[in-house]
Write a protein that binds this DNA or RNA. Structure first.
Lengths: 333, 333
DNA sequence: AATCAAATTGAAAACGTTTTCAACTTGATA
DNA sequence: TATCAAGTTGAAAACGTTTTCAATTTGATT
């Protein structure tokens, strides 16, 4: 069935050298006499020899493949990170095994095991949360792992993020400064440390500094979906919120359209700041003000960090925080 | 550096059986006495043995990995397909090596070579075009390849698509029926057969059947980006177009916002039908009418087809066309 | 011409599985 | 009890590379 495949042995025979020599020229090892190199190269060309990466992986214990665990490629936020990861990976000659986890702990554990079995050289993990079981897998892994856009509240794993607390605090302050006394905090599950311990903290800090009381009713916990946002409008209305900081762009688009479709005006009746600055923010009307995050860069830097770890190069800082900003668009004054 | 790894040999020794037997129980081969199976399983558990997939791949010539070439994960259309691919792949115990091609022929060829070198069991290719060089790689590949959302005008490769010609014809007819005599056709590069030979053909057919003259000025060739769409408004205006069929949702969102931002009303002054029915169509205002495509399913069916090919199962139909539809939303009357 | 270090090469042992084939057990049947 | 088929097992040969180490060649230096 297979067209018979050409092996290094065939090349060695035809070129009248040893396999070792062929291996050297294939791998660009300089200790080969130019004449020999040429001779081998010619045979390689003539036979159309292609090294088998699997055999190479077995012998060298390197697969030049890294695993990437992503909640959902379909999510604009994560796919932007994924793009950054892949570009840098390619730059360093790695390939990416990409798998969707749906943030499902069982699936994550299973995928991690598969990746380790496949001997990936490293792993980039994205998600909102690190379950205990997942953490256990991380610990037993003999492969470097880097988190991207995913905080580790126990500060054990290398990770690349922005300072979510400070960013949300600034966004909230901005809304308060516009005269909003009842600013809603809309996020994904508060079971996730990134929301509970980081973002919410920033929200509270802003309130406190402004002398406003923290009101639990203004905190909305939902899932990161457009639909969920749309349905939130009545609830927001009933607690007299006049603005919201929202943890995800699709969710925010939902909220905004829910508010707009209910006949209110954004930003006159309701101001919105979202969190991820994906291109969606520019596509909706009004355009959404947002915390800006260097999405692509988070992925890129995470991958770059991973390459260092894989080479056991020294790393100055295991957890890197990239700069964030606040982009004013039409959903705020 | 590696924590010493447990091999099948270690298990065999500890369980006092041969490697062959361990291999059998690991692979669920039924020809093992239950008592032996238990003994081996116990040792595996005790030693925490994990089979090395690379070695397995070398010995068995199967990697349970498939390659996926995608123009850009960040594109909502393609990421939806990718999700379908990954889900079905996982269902059949395959993993996905995902690489972005940017539709760059050179990159595509290079990636194909890498994938073949890594001995993937199959490949799913997405893109708008198959360059000659890419086609040549396809031919020399000894691995099954399936196109997803990518037509093969030479009808050689297995592929999963919708009937773009019929879909565009229907969309165009719809706009004509609404009284629009000057319907623009906005698409990506006409170098791509999918646009030149399929979509444009549908557009022309609709005009012809309606007794309208084909006017080249109404055909806009641009790239698939939001920005490009936004900038198109003046040009559309200058040729007195009152409606458009658009080949990509982000592009369409750009056009719509360009038109709206110029003070015109959609759909009163300008009607729009877009092509991919991604969730973006629901997020913009007005919501966009669209040709509907079963995006996820295109990916899923392509992957399913690939599994059959990889198993050399008989395949009834190499090129499958999934049903499309027309979803009326607020950008048309 | 002899010497020695550096450059170049090859033989063979990994790497960790699967798979083939022959040998050995077992238990039922005659 | 002898016979035989079916059920279990193991030895060893792949799979296609990289890598180690020793052997050989080369060329400059005395």
């Amino acid at each position: 069935m297979d067209k018979q495949t050409v092996t290094i042995y065939d090349v060695a025979r035809e070129a009248d050298v040893s396999m070792a020599t062929v291996s050297r020229v294939v791998n660009g090892n300089p200790n080969v006499k130019p004449a020999t190199r040429k001779k081998v190269l010619d045979v390689i060309e003539r036979l159309d020899y292609r090294p088998n990466a699997v055999a190479r992986g077995l012998a060298s214990k390197k697969t030049t493949t890294v695993g990437v665990i992503i909640p959902d490629v379909t999510n604009i936020y994560f796919s932007a990170l994924a793009r950054g990861i892949d570009d840098i990976a390619m730059m360093y000659k790695y390939n990416i095994i990409l798998t969707n986890s749906d943030e499902n702990g069982r699936k994550e554990v299973q995928v991690l095991n598969t990746l380790m079995a496949k001997q990936v050289d490293g792993i980039v993990f994205m998600g909102n949360d690190i379950s205990d079981e997942v953490r256990k897998e991380f610990e037993r892994a003999k492969t470097p792992i880097v988190l991207a856009g995913c905080v580790d509240d126990q500060d054990q794993m290398p990770s690349v993020n922005i300072d979510y607390t400070a960013a949300v605090e600034e966004a909230t302050k901005n809304l308060i400064d516009h005269g909003n006394e009842r600013v809603a905090f809309v996020s994904g599950s508060l079971d996730y440390p990134i929301n509970r311990d980081y973002r919410l903290k920033g929200y509270k800090q802003a309130l406190k500094k402004a002398g406003l009381r923290y009101d639990e009713k203004l905190v909305f916990e939902t899932d990161y979906s457009y639909k969920a946002g749309q349905l939130l409008q009545p609830a927001l209305q009933s607690v007299h919120a006049t603005a919201a900081v929202i943890g995800d762009d699709e969710l925010a688009a939902g909220v905004m359209n829910g508010v707009t479709d209910a006949g209110l005006s954004v930003p006159d009746d309701f101001e919105i700041i979202t969190s991820n600055d994906t291109k969606l923010t520019e596509m909706v009307r009004p355009k959404m003000s947002s915390i800006t995050q260097p999405l692509y860069d988070i992925g890129a830097v995470a991958m770059r960090l991973l390459t260092k770890l894989m080479n056991s190069e020294p790393v100055e800082n295991k957890t890197v925080l990239l700069p964030y900003g606040l982009m004013k668009r039409a959903s705020t004054h």
